[in-house]
Amino acid sequence: MLLDIRNLTKRFGGLTAVSNVSFGIERGEIIGIFGPNGSGKTTTLSLIAGILVPTDGSIVWKGKDISAVPPFEVAQHGLVKTFQNPQLFPELTVAQHMRIACHLHIKRALGFGRVWSLFGGMPAELNGTLTRKIDQMLELCRLADKRNEEAGALSYGGEKMLGVAMGMVCEPELLLLDEPASGLGHDEIMNLDAVLRDLRTHGVTLCIIDHKVGFLGRLADRSIALHHGAVIATGKTADVLANEAVIEAYLGKKHA
């Protein structure tokens, strides 16, 4: 098992945002986490990414507990999160964004040799690798023609794509996507669908949260439904979507 989450609980003061959530993620899957607004999806994702520290429970990544590890180290372990609103750097170009995101690649390639690169510059070979890698990821995320545009000039969908591309350049084993489809038009969602399927063929495991059932229904192999911070259903996506408790959570109690 790639990621194993047991009894994950997060309380903010008196409010329990995530309560006793357990699930696992296998390599190569696409996992969907869905639930209505305020059901604890984003909190769960932030807990996994290390942005928040759980009140209780454990997050085990490839056999190692990472529940108290800071976010940058979580990313170094191969677990990368994208943001719902990418909050990019408006005055930098797409390619410059990708260069920033190459940080981990450079760190892995050079280690302490990075210190020497301060004096002699980056090895040409590594620069070539990075350029190729950036091009490949931009191609994959359908951003190749926007390479030199400023991020501020991108559409909202383009920004979210760039967020995904930046995450991918960190070479994650598991990519955590925070509502990648929210705020996108129909065409953009279709595009996103295709990109995410391509990512899977590149060997990345995906964990996607969304409150739009349709989008996840097409994409996710397995799903977890959250409501008021607790798991109410888990299993094959189609089964979860057909689950009565899930339908009730989405539509509210029937007034009968």
Binding site: I51, F72, T82, K107
Partner: peptide
């Protein structure tokens, strides 16, 4: 020298959005 190296890019990421930088693996 500092700014044109990888350090400069990390600093730029921190200045612009340190939370995003952190999820990209930068030790802010």
């Amino acid at each position: 020298g500092v700014l044109s190296s990888w350090i400069g890019r990390c600093l730029a990421a921190i200045r612009l959005n340190d939370q995003l930088g952190e999820t990209l693996g930068i030790d802010v």
